[in-house]
């Protein structure tokens, strides 16, 4: 059921994209800047609103991730300030198409994910917020399969309070 809905949704997106292009080309000369605006309509709301690492991976990629020692994570073991924790991920796995960063104990686990087109190296560095001491999970899609690595961060001041 989910899969079919997803297909339908994708088709709809494609249609909308074509229509948008046809429409856009007419007014392109007026708004050159707008042509470069990314499309956020395919933002996966459900995946970004799911607590728990495994549930989120299943929602985002529709598969389970296996542990891999070929994923290198670079992040502090103790973060003084949970509002800004630098996280880097690099992998030697081949044919990487996507990398995701998940924070286990945040209200919603998914922090960010990245499309890695051919020619882009499987490396990304980003800064994330963490509510409390937590596991950070990096998910890499390589050859169509999901792999993950986990590292714990001790957070002394949470980044989601107020």
């Amino acid at each position: 059921m989910t899969d079919q809905r997803r297909r339908g949704f994708l088709k709809g997106m494609l249609g909308a994209g074509v229509a948008g292009f046809a429409l856009g080309s007419g007014i392109m000369s007026l708004r050159v800047q707008a042509a470069a605006t990314p499309d956020a309509s395919d933002w996966p709301k459900k995946a970004f609103n799911t607590p728990g690492v495994d549930e989120t991976i299943a929602e985002l990629y529709e598969m389970e991730a296996t542990e891999s020692d070929q994923i290198t994570m670079d992040l502090p073991t103790i973060a003084q300030n949970g509002a800004v924790v630098p996280v880097s991920v690099e992998t030697t796995l081949p044919n990487v198409t996507s990398i995701a960063l998940l924070v286990d104990r945040n209200p919603n686990a998914l922090a960010a994910y990245f499309d890695i087109p051919q020619g882009t190296l499987p490396f990304v560095s980003n800064r994330l917020k963490m509510a409390e001491t937590t596991d950070v999970v990096a998910v890499v899609i390589s050859d169509g399969k999901a792999y993950k690595a986990t590292q714990n961060v001790k957070v002394t001041v949470g980044g989601c309070g107020g």
């Binding site: 800004v84 499309d115 490396f123 560095s125 980003n126 800064r127 917020k129 963490m130």
Partner: peptide, 25 residues
Amino acid sequence: GKDVFVAHWGPAVSKDPFLEFRFKG
């Protein structure tokens, strides 16, 4: 004209986001 990187972000990305990546070509 080709996307070399697309980031999909949620609210857990820090204020004033920083991003680094590498690409060939």
